[in-house]
Computed example of a mutant assay.
Amino acid sequence: MNRTKPSQRSVVVEAPARLHMGFLDFGRLGGRRFGGVGLTIDGLSTRIRAERATSNSAGAGYPRILPLLEILQRKFDLHTMDTNGGCVRIEVEKSIPEHVGLGSGTQMALAVGCAVARLFDLETSASTVAALLDRGRRSGIGIGAFDQGGFLVDGGSAIIGDSGVPPIVSRLAFPAHWRVLLVFDDSAQGLHGGEESGAFCALPMFPEASSAQLCRLVLLRALPSLQAANIEEFGAAITELQQAIGDYFAQAQGGRYASPRVAEALAWFAGRGASGIGQSSWGPTGFVIVESEDRAQVLLEAARAWWNGNGGNGRTALRFAVYQGRNRGGEIWVREARAQNAANYA
């Protein structure tokens, strides 16, 4: 059996965070279910560096990377590709916070899978990597965020048969001047793993009329208003979607929002005229869509003063940060160690 020698190539992959703003249908009558809505976030991401090695390794604090590498070795048949059995060393340069509703698991899996594929010159797609690593079973928003960025709607997963990752059926650019103000509660985590799966199984039937209303809300209000950069109409549509989905999940997460502190902050923002308010995925991270950088900074400073200053009256501190939407997907850089200036990515 021919084996190639390990190269000195390194691959860097950056995978952006995403907001998951809700599902459209939980029923079993239309052939497909779920159907996700979400937004790619700029400035908040996972970035890893991958190199061939004599054994699989990853940085301390990232135990889930090693199982991913083992799956990829089997699925890609990497043991035939070099004398070290296709082993990879992963260095995590930064990462999306885990279990706070920003897609950390999917983005880490996509980053690792795409880095390994590029490291061994394998032609594959993010959707293929996601399927190999068992990501994107319910929602294609995270994969779409990695592929192309922007504001995304996926077409749900097939009820019968395996349709793979839910397809992105709409992608619109998010206005460059709009901002997303995120509300972090570092004392809490959203449902994940087995608890998340159990929660989905225990949810009551979702009324068909409610699903129809949410589909109309997204197709006839949210998407056209986003295309027209009408933040009042877009924000109202997203808030209505969030209220419906939050109330449906309330029995699983303890209320419309997973964190009472974030819920209080979101109500505070709403009282100051903000729109496009909700929780990403299972939370606890909340979001507010804001019409400009100036307005976002005013709200940011006021919120920090109220929650983390004397005005908070003993409230548990929250973190607030302002981001832009991201209208491009993840990025991959390859570095070949064959020249003195190899630090420049190609």
Results as ranks from 00 to 15, higher is better:
2 N>P: 12
3 R>S: 03
5 K>P: 06
5 K>S: 12
5 K>W: 04
8 Q>F: 04
9 R>Y: 03
11 V>H: 04
11 V>K: 06
14 E>C: 14
14 E>I: 07
16 P>M: 03
19 L>Q: 01
30 G>F: 06
37 V>Y: 01
38 G>N: 02
41 I>F: 01
43 G>V: 04
45 S>D: 13
48 I>M: 08
52 R>C: 13
52 R>M: 15
54 T>A: 13
59 G>M: 05
60 A>N: 06
62 Y>N: 11
65 I>H: 08
65 I>M: 09
66 L>N: 02
68 L>P: 09
69 L>D: 07
69 L>V: 13
69 L>F: 07
72 L>F: 08
73 Q>F: 00
74 R>I: 12
79 H>F: 05
80 T>Y: 02
81 M>P: 01
81 M>V: 05
84 N>I: 00
85 G>N: 09
86 G>W: 04
87 C>W: 02
89 R>S: 15
91 E>R: 12
92 V>W: 05
93 E>W: 02
98 E>R: 11
100 V>K: 02
102 L>Y: 02
104 S>V: 10
109 A>Y: 04
110 L>K: 05
112 V>W: 09
113 G>W: 05
117 A>I: 10
125 S>I: 10
132 L>Q: 09
133 L>P: 10
135 R>E: 05
136 G>Y: 01
137 R>E: 11
137 R>T: 15
140 G>N: 05
143 I>Q: 06
145 A>Y: 01
147 D>G: 06
152 L>H: 02
152 L>K: 06
153 V>I: 15
153 V>D: 05
154 D>Y: 02
154 D>E: 06
155 G>S: 02
156 G>M: 07
156 G>R: 09
158 A>M: 15
158 A>C: 14
159 I>P: 14
165 V>N: 07
167 P>V: 07
167 P>A: 03
169 V>K: 06
171 R>A: 05
171 R>K: 14
173 A>F: 04
175 P>V: 03
175 P>K: 02
181 L>P: 10
183 V>Y: 01
184 F>W: 14
184 F>R: 12
186 D>P: 14
188 A>N: 08
190 G>N: 03
195 E>M: 10
196 E>N: 05
196 E>C: 06
199 A>Y: 00
199 A>F: 07
200 F>S: 10
201 C>A: 11
206 F>H: 12
210 S>D: 11
221 R>M: 10
224 P>G: 13
226 L>D: 11
226 L>T: 10
226 L>P: 13
229 A>C: 14
230 N>S: 13
233 E>K: 13
234 F>M: 14
236 A>G: 08
238 I>Y: 01
240 E>R: 08
242 Q>T: 05
243 Q>Y: 01
243 Q>M: 04
244 A>I: 15
248 Y>D: 00
249 F>D: 00
250 A>I: 00
252 A>G: 02
255 G>P: 09
262 V>Q: 01
265 A>R: 07
267 A>H: 06
267 A>R: 13
268 W>Y: 14
270 A>G: 11
273 G>L: 04
275 S>W: 00
282 W>M: 03
282 W>A: 03
284 P>L: 01
288 V>M: 00
290 V>G: 05
294 D>C: 06
294 D>M: 05
295 R>K: 15
296 A>H: 03
299 L>T: 08
300 L>M: 06
302 A>L: 14
303 A>M: 13
305 A>F: 02
306 W>R: 14
307 W>Y: 15
308 N>F: 01
312 G>V: 08
316 T>V: 13
319 R>V: 08
320 F>A: 08
325 G>Y: 07
332 I>V: 15
337 A>D: 15
339 A>Q: 15
344 N>Q: 13
